[in-house]
Nucleic acid binder design. Structure first.
Lengths: 217, 217
DNA sequence: TTCCATTTTTGACGAATGTCAAAAGATAGA
DNA sequence: TCTATCTTTTGACATTCGTCAAAAATGGAA
């Protein structure tokens, strides 16, 4: 879902730390980070906030694990606390990476999660990652109980839509070089954390072309 | 906003009828068409439905008029009753058409309407058209009064997001020929109602290339 | 450190698409 | 109907980008 990542305010580095278990105390602190992130969309009441607290569960995965594979139904929306993910699908035998997610991004297979139909895409961990998950059922329960959470989601969708619109225009009407330079400006951290082959795919060009573009700067 | 139009269930033709004024009686009938359309997203109560009735105003435009021009703030969301519109923006001196709207589509400059910042795009009438408009303020009023309208909008956004995602993948990862053939399958009516030059732009290819692709079928 | 596997770079070539210009065709108004 | 204007087609050529293959560089594990 993170279609047009901006810099997320961390120093670019490749994650090498071991994954650790969290105490309840720490869980609370980390979920508050999630809530803080959420509040940049729409400011929730204490009550709604607590309800969200109670619905998110921590999940931990290792590098190269899959959060979702083609054909399965995506039943969760995730908040990515630490790590890097990619979404990709198969086109004529080739893997096409169409998005990445980084710290503080919401992640899901949008189409499958919304429609509850089998996913077309795969979601893979590019590093060991810590995520917080909410099930579709729990999310629906929240939406029924709190109009403000419905509003939050509506506003989040608006922002994600605008970003995707921007990315669409880039994809269809700009050259490979312009797309790469745009990435350099908008998401330089991506280059530090994702193999170039995946980035080439993300930009809609071959690895060789990306390499040649990069050699010109 | 109509990024991925499907067939809308009317016989393809070029509109040549004169525009006519509507009595209150007819206005009611036509707005019911709008409500019917809306109910394919989410089923409203009679009360919420009436509130929507009261917020939409009819507007009529002539061919080549502009609904919105670059730099202006888009203050309305429109429902297109009859006619054809295109959304386009300027890139390096060239007009880039990135969407069309047809009967029963919702239309707005999404980015500008949501953020209330100056629009990047223009919206132009490709034929005389009848639209129904709701202002941002009135829409907000409805959203505050009826959770179900908030939900309707949330669900509408989900559908529009999924369509745009699909179109994005098309744009970035398919060839010009595949994109044209896809258009033939998904929106054949478009070819009957829009000059080829605009369609080429919409598909992200030059008019000459589209002409050559078409000559091969 | 050394070795193996993976990723990235480089070169040669071909296919797809854009650009410019001119001709042909379609449309709208007098 | 005729004409002026706009749209579409066609041709020649340039450019961008993809593909295949091999070399170089990098990263991880023993």
């Amino acid at each position: 879902m993170c279609f047009y990542c901006r810099h997320h305010g961390f120093k670019p580095y490749r994650i090498k730390q071991p994954l650790i278990e969290f105490s309840k105390q720490v869980k609370k602190a980390v979920i508050e980070q999630l809530i803080t992130q959420i509040k940049t969309y729409y400011n929730l009441s204490a009550e709604a906030e607590q309800a969200m607290h109670d619905c998110f569960e921590q999940v931990v995965f290792s590098k190269n694990d899959y959060l979702l594979t083609e054909g399965k139904i995506c039943r969760h929306l995730y908040f990515l606390q630490q790590g890097v993910l990619r979404g990709f699908y198969n086109l004529d035998g080739k893997d096409i990476t169409h998005w990445f997610a980084f710290e503080n991004d919401f992640v899901t297979s949008f189409h499958s999660f919304i429609t509850q139909q089998p996913a077309i895409e795969n979601i893979q961990l590019l590093s060991g990652s810590i995520l917080w998950a909410i099930s579709k059922d729990n999310l629906n329960r929240l939406l029924n109980q709190y109009q403000e959470i419905e509003r939050l989601l509506r506003i989040a969708y608006e922002k994600y839509y605008i970003r995707l619109e921007e990315r669409f225009v880039n994809a269809q009407f700009k050259t490979a070089t312009e797309r790469y330079q745009n990435l350099l400006l908008q998401s330089p951290h991506m280059l530090e954390r994702v193999p170039l082959g995946y980035i080439a795919s993300y930009l809609g060009i071959s690895g060789e072309t990306l390499s040649r573009i990069r050699s010109r700067f």
